[in-house]
């Protein structure tokens, strides 16, 4: 039955898959295409699929003539810091949700859900004022704190899912074998959640790497700008230089895409219950 259905059904399936891939990749392709188009051809050959000559000049000038590297470094600090602290905090919280029954659990879960519901922009003004009061305006530390808080609830639910997939028996066996709860966590549970940790780290990194509006609000000096904010200033500073901007964009894509490609498998696995079974 499957054999006879193969030609038509499979062809349609592959066609559909090809369309999805095309739709997903074309805009990214276009970004790179503009980045490698020489400035003088940008308008004359703007709509061509591939320019008649191509150049890496834009990349060179972005790297050496603009503040790009500063923005890149700031974004790296903020995104890695956010990913690290969020995962740390969310791992502890997710573990508590997964392994303990305690008074107040439902309330805390409800509060965390609420943070996922309201418009974050609603608190942009109060946060601005609070950060000003704490002298954390225009500082990368302030940005890391805010991003970490924003991402902890989702990361906690994600980590809880990973912990739920690890049988409770394992850490009980470890505790009988001589572990404290904490050594059981470190020696038995932790190695088994590594895929989950990777997924969470990558997910949060990508989110922090992309955030624009809070960074715009909270950062204003040039040497503190993260990548999205810095790129926004390209629009005014280099208003005509599309090529440079796209070159900068292409470079900015690299870390988040690399991270994402590495972790997307774990993400699907992690959301599927019971990923870790002997």
């Amino acid at each position: 039955m499957q054999k006879t259905a193969f030609p038509l059904g499979a062809t349609l399936r592959y066609l559909a898959i090809a369309l999805y891939v095309l739709f997903a990749l074309f805009p990214i392709y276009w970004l790179i295409k503009i980045a490698v188009t020489p400035d003088r051809l940008i308008y004359t050959e703007g709509t061509q699929i591939w320019p008649s000559t191509f150049t890496l000049d834009n990349f060179v000038s972005v790297l050496f003539l603009t503040d790009f590297l500063v923005y890149f470094k700031n974004s790296m600090i903020v995104s890695l810091g956010t990913a690290f602290f969020t995962t740390l905090v969310a791992t502890a919280a997710g573990y508590a949700f997964s392994r303990f029954h305690f008074r107040g659990k439902a309330i805390i879960i409800a509060l965390m859900l609420i943070t996922q519901m309201f418009p974050l922009l609603m608190i942009i003004a109060p946060i601005y004022k609070i950060m000003a009061g704490l002298r954390l305006l225009d500082s990368l530390t302030g940005l890391i704190i805010v991003y970490t808080a924003f991402n902890v609830p989702f990361a906690t639910f994600l980590m809880q899912g990973f912990f739920d997939g690890i049988p409770k028996d394992l850490e009980e066996a470890a505790m009988i074998d001589g572990c404290t709860r904490f050594t059981a966590l470190r020696k038995v549970i932790f190695p088994l959640t590594l895929p989950g940790l990777a997924a969470t780290l990558g997910f949060i990194f990508t989110a922090a790497w992309s955030e624009l509006l809070f960074a715009l609000m909270l950062i204003n000096s040039d040497d503190k700008m993260t990548f999205p904010v810095g790129l926004k200033t390209f629009v005014s500073k280099f208003a005509v230089d599309w090529g440079q901007m796209m070159a900068a964009g292409t470079l900015a894509l690299i870390p988040s895409c690399l991270f994402f490609i590495l972790i997307q498998r774990f993400l699907v696995k992690g959301l599927t219950a019971g990923a870790v079974k002997g």
Partner: peptide, 27 residues
């Protein structure tokens, strides 16, 4: 590959799509 758009920072997608819709430099 198909999950990749999720990893593209929103401001970049925005800029990029603005290009794609622009008749001078987009198809």
């Amino acid at each position: 590959l198909v999950f990749l758009p999720w990893a593209v920072p929103a401001f970049l997608s925005g800029l990029n799509w603005a290009w794609l819709f622009n008749p001078i430099i987009g198809p």
